[in-house]
């Protein structure tokens, strides 16, 4: 479903993503795990065509993201790390706009908004919303097109515990609907709870690709998940030296 093939992205002399390759299968929940600046966001942005790779390619459902960006993006719904909507638009206007872009009816947009529990708030402007409501609106926009692939960049980074819980419920529901989900996080526990497979990023490189079962069995030897992560970082640092 998603094939990332020798993806490299450089910003000047800095290599943000270094020869990363992996596949994500249909219906799989895949987590990018790594600290800030490890290349997770750049990889995700390259997958949706926001970043132009220095080399390598990303194939989404058989479409090359660089060669056919519009077609490839038709299969994807992406939520950036910091969701922002124009403050003077209402939730309904935001939803209907993204609906029109996706060639969906206003009724469908309204229905998704109602499902996101926006009753009573649909005609209020974004400026009146709390951070949690903006995140809910973001998730509503994400699920609006019924795209088979969902890409989420650090979706719980700025959320309170209630928001985190809501996001987890959202991922579980989407997974049950058969969606392929890729999300980035630096929270080891989050990856373990939600993902089928985990890609561990260190210094722009994908240093490990593990299924959750393998990760758990490795943990028996390595100790906690934090220990395991530090083990990969140390290994990477040694290799670099």
């Amino acid at each position: 479903m998603i094939a990332v093939d020798h993806l490299t992205k450089r910003f000047g002399r800095f290599t943000a993503v270094d020869d990363v390759s992996f596949h994500v299968r249909m219906g799989e929940v895949f987590a990018f795990l790594g600290p800030n600046g490890s290349g997770k966001t750049t990889t995700l942005k390259s997958m949706v065509g926001l970043c132009i790779p220095t080399s390598g390619r990303v194939i989404i459902n058989g479409q090359d993201v660089q060669k056919c960006p519009k077609e490839a993006r038709g299969f994807v719904s992406y939520l950036p790390q910091r969701v922002v909507f124009p403050e003077n638009l209402t939730a309904r206007e935001v939803m209907r706009f993204y609906g029109r872009i996706r060639k969906l009816t206003s009724e469908h947009a309204d229905e998704i908004l109602a499902r996101a529990h926006f009753d009573g708030f649909a005609d209020r402007t974004v400026s009146e919303f709390s951070g949690g409501m903006i995140q809910r609106l973001g998730l509503a926009v994400l699920s609006l097109p019924d795209a088979p692939i969902l890409l989420l960049d650090e979706p719980t980074a700025n959320l309170d515990p209630q928001g985190v819980k809501r996001f987890r419920e959202f991922v579980i529901a989407q997974k049950q609907e058969g969606k392929t989900i890729v999300f980035s996080t630096h929270l080891l526990d989050e990856a373990r709870q939600l993902a089928d497979r985990v890609g561990i990023f260190v210094g722009g490189r994908l240093v490990a690709l593990e299924s959750i079962q393998d990760l758990r069995s490795t943990l028996v030897v390595e100790g906690t998940i934090e220990d395991l992560y530090l083990h990969y970082v140390e290994e990477y640092e040694r290799e670099k030296e």
Partner: peptide, 15 residues
């Protein structure tokens, strides 16, 4: 614009 808003818009199936 705002980076978050731009990312969301450019990630849609539009050129």
């Amino acid at each position: 614009g705002d980076r978050g808003a731009a990312e969301l818009l450019y990630s849609q199936p539009v050129s």
